[in-house]
């Protein structure tokens, strides 16, 4: 599965915010959005990833970008994960239908039935400006790659 390519308009999708409301393609319009797809809440690698990204949030959001964590975990698990880490990164759940949004972005890892480790940056026009799929879900993309991509836009 290939991750959605730059220049592509994002497909229609629906994710659940932590408060239970929906987050859809309409929420992408008018802002730069960084969607960080990660496999599992509370897993060691995902823990490292969100901690480092949290550390870099001032730089990521400096020009108005908003970063979200996306996984197939239920919202309650995601909120517990975020609170456990003490990070301010809002979580979006792709729990039901499981992985439907991740699949539409090419960010689903079928062999393990989980979100793959991928990053998709969407511009204010709703088109993908940059995307990255890790060579394997255990590889964590450095936050420098996000900053590079945001700086190039």
């Amino acid at each position: 599965m290939s991750v959605i390519a730059p220049g592509t308009k994002v497909p229609a999708f629906s994710l659940a915010r932590e408060d239970g409301s929906k987050f859809t393609e309409a929420d992408l319009i008018g802002q730069t959005t960084v969607l960080v797809f990660y496999p599992f809440a509370f897993s060691p690698v995902c823990t490292n990833q969100l901690q480092v990204y949290s550390e870099a949030l001032p730089e990521i959001t400096a020009d108005g970008a908003v970063l979200y964590g996306v996984s197939t975990d239920a919202s309650f698990s995601q909120s517990a994960f975020r609170e456990h880490l003490g990070v301010p990164i809002e979580q979006l759940s792709d729990f039901e239908p499981k992985g439907a949004a991740a699949k539409s972005f090419g960010a689903y890892f079928e062999p393990a039935g989980m979100t793959n480790r991928a990053i998709v940056i969407v511009g204010p026009d709703g088109c993908v400006s940059w995307s990255h799929l890790a060579d394997n879900p255990g590889d964590t993309p450095g936050v420098n790659l996000i900053i590079d991509a945001l700086s190039a836009n």
Binding site: V45, N48, Q49, V52, E55, A56, T140, P141, G142, V143, N144, L145
Partner: peptide
């Protein structure tokens, strides 16, 4: 820490 992040470090 900044140098490590710029090099791509994500964990310790």
């Amino acid at each position: 820490v900044t140098a490590a992040m710029r090099a791509g470090a994500t964990g310790a």
